[in-house]
Amino acid sequence: MKKIRHILNWTATVGSAVVVCLFLGIILIDIFSQGWSSVTWHFVVDFPRNGMTEGGIIPAVIGTVLLTLITTVFAVPFGIACAVYLNEYAPSNWVTGLIRASIRNLAGIPSIIYGLFGLALFVQTLNLGTSVLSAGLTLGLLSLPYIITTTEEALKTIPNSMREATLALGCTQFETIRDVVVPKALPGILTGVILTLSRAAGETAPILFTGAAFYINGLTMSVNQEFMALPYHLYMLSTQHTSIEQVRPLAYGTAVVLISLVFILNLVAFYVRYKNREKA
């Protein structure tokens, strides 16, 4: 009887793991098998032509890179500073509790709400217009709770004995954080940051109203311009285009490029973590 239960448990857990991997595998195989043939160097660096039925996706690649950069510049310093405050300085009282609860709830808000909020705040109230800046700031807001949470987790892994070491030498709390706590937690922080950004890079809903364009002529060269982005380009090619059947290979190609971009970011995160484990 005990043995049967053991076998059942084992099958259930291993089965679940296999199913998860299976889904990932099916998605990857489907996209890569259908999209691989359209991904050429030419496809990545060329402009779309003939009503986007031919040519490449360079404006969307540049747009997504620019967008992610703006998100990084905005969200990473704010997120890390906020996590440092919460973990190192904040007293444990109801105000801190409220801040933490707010952050948890922010992480649970659907991304389309962020899009509408970005439209109301950045595009209209702050008058930044529909632009890559507005969209980057919106994505930054979306990323903040994840960056704060992962950074705080990384800071929590630093033992107190480390902080006491420098405090007892006569360091101020700020010096302790700057010279010991944050450097020691940096690999963990970076891993969280990169994973968050790779998620943000693939978001569509928050950029929909805030700056992503169906089609632009030329490249986005300044932060107050509209932009094309890979996820939105993909959405558009697969559902909004006038001749969907004709552009299907291009849609698959775009998906391959987007997935590869995110995959590369994840690999960097793995590498950072691996390097850190080696050092420790």
Partner: peptide
């Protein structure tokens, strides 16, 4: 300044994640 006058050695050795030299130089730099 007080903590400079009253130094402390802990139960578990707690060197900083730096080189031997920098562990000592850091105290001086501060």
């Amino acid at each position: 300044q007080l903590r400079k006058r009253i130094g402390m050695v802990f139960q578990k050795p707690n060197p900083l994640p730096k080189s031997i030299f920098d562990n000592l130089a850091y105290a001086l730099k501060i």
